[in-house]
Amino acid sequence: MPAYRPPVIPASEITPRSVYLRRREFMGLMAGAGLALGVGDARAEAPATVPLKTVPGSYKVGEPLTSRDDVTTYNNYYEFGTDKADPSRHSGDFKPRPWTITVDGLVGKPQTFDVDKLIADLPVEERIYRMRCVEAWSMVIPWDGIPLKALLDKVEPQGSAKFVAFETVVRPKEMPGQSGYLQPMPWPYVEGLRLDEAMHPLTILAVGLYGETLPNQNGAPIRLVVPWKYGFKGIKSIVRISLVEKQPPNSWNSLQANEYGFYANVNPGVDHPRWSQATERRIGASGFFGSGRRPTLMFNGYADEVASLYAGMDIRANY
């Protein structure tokens, strides 16, 4: 069981909305809940996404894409709730624009960027990547993004910078998972990469998917995508990127270090303590009656590109 400490929240901060959103969970238990599945859902419609101008990217996957519907309704984004459907249902109040992202720390030119200006300044590439969740399911997603390296080059990292730390926004009023009694983890959500991982051409800051700006539930307006690592490394709605000397904390590792490492490279040979990572289920691949289970690939199939980053490192110990 995860070591869980609920944060102390004053009663004044518990909004009627969050109380309202919880009522169904109680009802689900008490009433004939089998019939209550998916009935009468108060859904806050997320603001529409807008088309992005993109250039074709150099990375593709020869596997069918996961449908946009599945990519945008099956999400782990605990700021909006822990159920897979919560982010699409409860992110309607989130305002991803205007948005700035601060890049600071051990850099020559610390700067704050407007996300829409970044999108206008840098070419947005389509990148079709496999996405492997640590929970042993996977998707194939057409992201639209800019290489993280392009952004980091603008701020001129110093020689002493060894790691990159990332931080998600904290907005309890817009993110129902960040208020109330049962919060799954401390906020803000934080993540980190080694500098060479951050500069790797596969690593992108995604600003869209399926050719349109990111929906709120997928981490609007800007999120990290590192396709050879488990999905939880892909921190969403980023407000700050800092270049640092020492390995920064990452949320899941802080919560449960024996289950979630800093590196979190997809590795079928290193199991999660509670489940095997040898296989995965491709979402939407075979509907209800086929299991859709397939073998998990080393580095999620990106071994040729990234294995050299870890030459000489014990990837079993540094999971």
Partner: peptide
């Protein structure tokens, strides 16, 4: 057996979301 039957029917007709098996 209603919850099982209802859930099975929803799953078989695409009503259980992106990961109906789970």
């Amino acid at each position: 057996f209603v919850p099982a039957a209802a859930s099975f029917w929803l799953g078989a007709t695409g009503g259980l979301g992106a990961d109906p098996v789970r």
